[in-house]
Structures are given as C-alpha cells and as structure tokens.
Amino acid sequence: MTRAELEKYIGETYNTDPDYPWEDTPQATVFRHRSNRKWFALTMTVGRDRLGLPEGGSVDVVNLKCDPIMLGSMLMEPGFFPAYHMSKAHWISAALDGSAEGEKIKLLLDVSYEMTAGKGRIKG
C-alpha cells in the first residue's frame, strides 16, 4: 500500500480530510476524528535508519494507535516497526513501501480509529 492509496482509503472509509498541522513539515499529514479531533493516523516521511533499516534514503510511514496485546505480534510482521516519534507502547509504524501487507494496515487503521473514537462513537 502506498501513501496515496492509504490517504484515499482513509478519506473514503472514515469521511475525514487530511490535516497539515506543521509548517516546517508540510509532508506530515494527520487524520482526526471529526467529533473529538483526536488523531487516529499520522503519515510522514522518515529516514530509513530511524526505523532500523540498513538502506539509506527515506520511506513514507503511517503511525497508528495499537492495542498493546497486538503490538508484539504485529512487530514480527514485515514492514511494521516500533512507532517513530510516538509512544512505542501504544503506537506502531507501518512502512508504505509495499513491505507491510495492505490488509494488515487496514486492520490496524480500524483498531486505531476505534481506540481513539471515545465512547459511543461510530465511523463518520
């Protein structure tokens, strides 16, 4: 799954628009709940070395809130890493370069959305 595919999927599935909160990092995109404004996804470009990858250059990633019980098993999957620049106990980073399975990213996206929704909230 690419960043463009993910961002399109988020817009269509969760009826939310991207937010660009940082002037100094215009490529970083936050996706928030319409009701409570809490983040459920953050896309950004990071150096591959920041994820512990040996190759140089950069990669697009998405940070998603993750159930701590799921976190350990997801980190064993290709393309998933301890969250970059967020709590590693509650967030996970997925590479958007095809190494992380798209269906698993979508599953974690649903988990993140639900975990940040607040009580009694539904999609939209």
Rank of each mutant, 00 (worst) to 15 (best):
L109T: 06
V62R: 07
E5K: 05
A4M: 09
Y84Q: 14
T25A: 13
K88F: 02
K106W: 00
G52M: 06
H90I: 04
G120R: 12
K123N: 02
G98F: 02
P68C: 11
D17L: 11
G120P: 05
S99R: 02
Y113P: 00
I105T: 02
E114V: 10
T43P: 02
K104S: 09
G79C: 01
I69L: 11
E5T: 03
D17N: 10
R34S: 13
A95L: 02
I122R: 15
Y14S: 04
F31C: 02
N63C: 12
N36R: 00
A100S: 08
Y9K: 06
E55N: 05
Y20L: 13
E77G: 11
L6Q: 08
K123E: 01
Y20V: 11
I10Q: 12
R121H: 12
I10R: 09
L6I: 03
P68N: 09
K123I: 12
Y84E: 13
G56R: 08
R34E: 10
A83K: 05
W22L: 15
T116N: 00
S35Q: 12
M86T: 02
G102N: 06
A94K: 07
S112V: 04
S93H: 10
L107Y: 12
L42W: 04
T45L: 03
M86E: 00
R34G: 12
C66Y: 05
G118F: 05
K38C: 03
A100I: 07
G118N: 00
L51A: 11
A89W: 01
E23M: 14
L51G: 09
C66M: 12
K38R: 15
V111N: 12
Y20Q: 10
A100K: 00
A95Q: 07
T2L: 03
Y14M: 04
F31A: 01
R32K: 15
P68L: 10
K106S: 03
S93V: 03
M76K: 14
W39H: 09
R37W: 08
V61R: 09
G79T: 00
G56E: 11
A4S: 15
Y20P: 05
G98Y: 11
T29W: 04
H33C: 09
M44H: 04
A28G: 11
D19E: 15
R37H: 14
R48I: 05
V61G: 14
P68D: 03
C66H: 03
D24N: 15
G57D: 00
S35A: 12
F80S: 01
V59G: 08
